[in-house]
């Protein structure tokens, strides 16, 4: 009996410690790259303004991020009572920004100055052993435009 409990507590503690550290690190890198790629304009509009001689291509970025054991446990508890699952919010925020950044990086490599008609898709890759969330996938795609 204590073995189960010890394993659970160790998982919980390491989930918390490593999960928080990973989140902090990820946010730091997101901030840096967002600054670096700030020059590329992003818009969800379909109609381009008149820009002259341009060419475009489809660019996309996707990421799969998993939640740590601690947050999964908190979310499981929250599921009993209902309400906002704040533990998952940062997961989704990070995933979405990471996907957009990867899309922008691809656009930057193409030499584009802007990405248009951006769409975002979220899907959960769940049904792991406990039947609860394992991870989310976010896909961002749009049309990158560069001057010829």
């Amino acid at each position: 009996m204590p073995i189960d409990l010890i394993v659970f507590l160790v998982l919980l503690a390491s989930g918390y410690i490593f999960g928080q550290a990973a989140e902090k690190r990820h946010y730091k890198s997101i901030f840096e790259r967002e600054k670096a790629l700030h020059g590329i304009l992003c818009s969800s509009e379909r109609h381009l303004p008149e820009m002259g001689n341009v060419e475009g291509t489809l660019v996309s970025g996707s990421v799969v991020i998993s939640i740590d054991y601690f947050k999964r446990f908190v979310a499981g508890l929250r599921n009993l009572f209902g309400g906002r699952i704040s533990a998952y919010e940062s997961l989704l925020d990070r995933a979405r920004r990471e996907a957009i950044l990867r899309m922008k990086a691809e656009a930057g490599a193409y030499g584009a100055s802007s990405v248009w008609n951006i769409r975002l898709e979220t899907s959960s890759i769940y049904k792991n052993t406990q039947g609860s969330i394992g991870s989310v996938e976010v896909l961002a795609y749009g049309t990158a435009i560069k001057f010829r």
């Binding site: 918390y16 700030h38 908190v74 009993l80 009572f81 704040s86 533990a87 919010e89």
Partner: peptide, 27 residues
């Protein structure tokens, strides 16, 4: 032609600024 720009959006709108341990203890 209209102006196009990407101002920086402030942090913390899509993420609740609450310590995860607080939620954990309450729950």
């Amino acid at each position: 032609m209209a102006l196009y720009e990407n101002p920086e959006i402030p942090e913390g709108i899509n993420v609740t600024a609450e310590h995860p341990l607080k939620d954990f203890v309450l729950l």
